[in-house]
């Protein structure tokens, strides 16, 4: 296990070093949560009563958090295709390092990025008047990290399976659209017609959004948090398994 930690942290440091050297990555990463909150948040304030909530930011920040986690992570795989093309993945796979560590090191980077974004989002939300329970914040961020890790792992797996940005981009778009529309990230599904809400029941990420929202609101005993937590763990485990499998048998 110590070998695993060592290997994955070598991969992590390498990824982080390359990303930090790219100022665009840093700036866009930091700017994203700020823009969402400042440009979309005010639109919700007058409507918040209709959602059955009282504080617009306590309601909105969890949605933004999950959105950042899912969408940022979906794009994580693109950099892997570039590395694969230059033989980096093959060079790593010929070392005795654990295959899971090769994936995990990259996930650490994505999770660190998400964690920093979450801190910015929550800090800014707090300034704007968000009123969330402290334990709920911690739990909510934890769920988001699990989900973000799942999406990043899946994105890496997809990247190594398709090995082409041209194939991967439409697939990601195809997945993102229903996720955005059926997860209640921007507006709660509860305000829609019953059939639409039923449809959204089949979207696992919707339950995570509900869970993060419940936890921010302090409903720690609610079934929403339970289901959200369950789904995050399940998605994370499945994606990690898929990602590791592709690193293991990847056929460059």
């Amino acid at each position: 296990m110590s070998g695993f930690l060592r290997d994955s942290s070598i991969v992590f440091r390498r990824q982080l070093r390359m990303n930090l050297r790219n100022p665009a990555w840093v700036i866009i990463g930091m700017l994203q949560p700020i823009l969402y909150l400042l440009l979309f948040g005010p639109l919700l304030e007058p409507l918040i009563g209709q959602f059955g909530a009282t504080n617009a930011y306590t309601f909105f920040v969890p949605g933004m958090l999950v959105q950042l986690g899912v969408f940022g992570a979906f794009f994580a795989g693109f950099s892997l295709i570039g590395e694969w093309r230059e033989g980096v993945i093959e060079a790593e796979r010929v070392t005795p390092a654990s295959r899971t560590a090769l994936l995990a090191g990259r996930l650490y980077r994505d999770l660190l990025q998400l964690f920093v974004q979450a801190l910015i989002l929550i800090g800014l939300g707090d300034l704007l008047g968000m009123d969330a329970s402290p334990i709920g914040l911690v739990l909510g961020v934890l769920l988001t990290l699990l989900l973000g890790g799942a999406c990043a792992a899946a994105s890496n797996a997809l990247a190594l399976t398709t090995k082409s940005e041209d194939v991967m981009a439409p697939v990601i778009n195809m997945v993102m659209l229903p996720v955005l529309l059926l997860s209640g990230i921007l507006l709660p599904m509860a305000i829609g017609p019953a059939w639409l809400e039923r449809a959204s029941d089949f979207m696992p990420i919707r339950h995570v959004v509900d869970g993060v929202r419940a936890s921010f609101a302090g409903d720690l005993a609610s079934s929403g948090l339970l289901w959200g937590g369950l789904w995050s763990v399940v998605l994370f485990a499945l994606a990690l398994w898929w990602g590791t499998a592709t690193f293991r048998r990847e056929n460059a």
Partner: peptide, 21 residues
């Protein structure tokens, strides 16, 4: 294809690679 990423520093790539052993 080689194994060093075009946008990373040569020495860093060598050190990381060796450390994976």
């Amino acid at each position: 294809a080689g194994g060093a990423f075009s946008g990373a520093r040569a020495g860093d790539e060598v050190v990381d690679h060796g450390m994976l052993y």
